[in-house]
């Protein structure tokens, strides 16, 4: 346990035991077993010991979110994502190989409709992974993403990108059912996380 807090944000830091989350421990143990490459009592127990130790040494604030995963919509989200990655990769490759042409880029603001942090995070991750768009700035307060779009061309391309991002957000909301949003946390907790 810590003694006197050195920084203001340590006041609100959760106790170390709160870092022990079953899901995290199981996931870390699974990684350990996979790295050993065989499933035996030795690797499983060793993995659990290491996982608990890691969670105690590096406590992570508990994620508070209400998830209602809908498998069919999740499958659709993944399939559409992979299709987007392939299509966009071909487009970006084509832009790259047109050596004589300078791309016309854009930085656009996309104000997400939901106020869930989880949806913001997932949408930001997925738009970053799909080539052609890159999250330059994310505002948690207003749930706004700023995207850098490769070779948007003109206003039509910009509008298309915005529509695609909103469609992605809708698919994420349908798949994870996070439209209710997480429990709003206080500012001080947020700083320490």
């Amino acid at each position: 346990m810590r003694t006197a807090p050195q920084r203001p944000d340590e006041l609100s830091r959760p106790p170390r035991v709160a870092g022990l989350q079953p899901a995290a421990v199981l996931w870390l143990a699974a990684v350990w077993v996979a790295l050993w490459g065989d499933l035996s009592a030795f690797t499983v127990v060793g993995g659990l010991v290491v996982a608990v130790a890691v969670c105690l040494v590096f406590p992570f604030p508990r994620l508070r979110m209400r998830l209602r995963v809908r498998p069919l919509w999740l499958g659709w989200l993944v399939v559409r994502f992979l299709a987007d990655v392939v299509v966009a990769s071909v487009q970006v490759s084509w832009t790259t190989l047109q050596l004589r042409r300078e791309p016309r880029n854009a930085v656009i603001e996309v104000d997400l409709r939901t106020d869930s942090d989880l949806v913001l995070t997932v949408v930001a991750e997925m738009t970053s992974l799909v080539p052609g768009s890159l999250v330059v700035e994310a505002r948690r307060s207003t749930h706004t993403l700023f995207l850098h779009v490769l070779d948007a061309g003109d206003q039509r391309g910009v509008d298309k990108m915005r529509r695609q991002t909103f469609a992605l957000e809708r698919r994420v909301v349908m798949a994870l059912g996070a439209d209710t949003g997480p429990v709003q946390e206080t500012r001080s907790e947020e700083v320490s996380s």
């Binding site: 016309r104 880029n105 930085v107 603001e109 890159l134 999250v135 700035e137 850098h148 206003q155």
Partner: peptide
């Protein structure tokens, strides 16, 4: 990957290392 690319993109935009003449729309600056 998205974490790294977001951090670098954000740092470079804030440090002003952007060719603004190549942007058709700029909502952020």
């Amino acid at each position: 990957t998205p974490i790294g690319s977001h951090m670098v993109g954000r740092a470079s935009f804030r440090a002003g290392q952007v060719r603004r003449d190549l942007l058709v729309v700029d909502d952020l600056s």
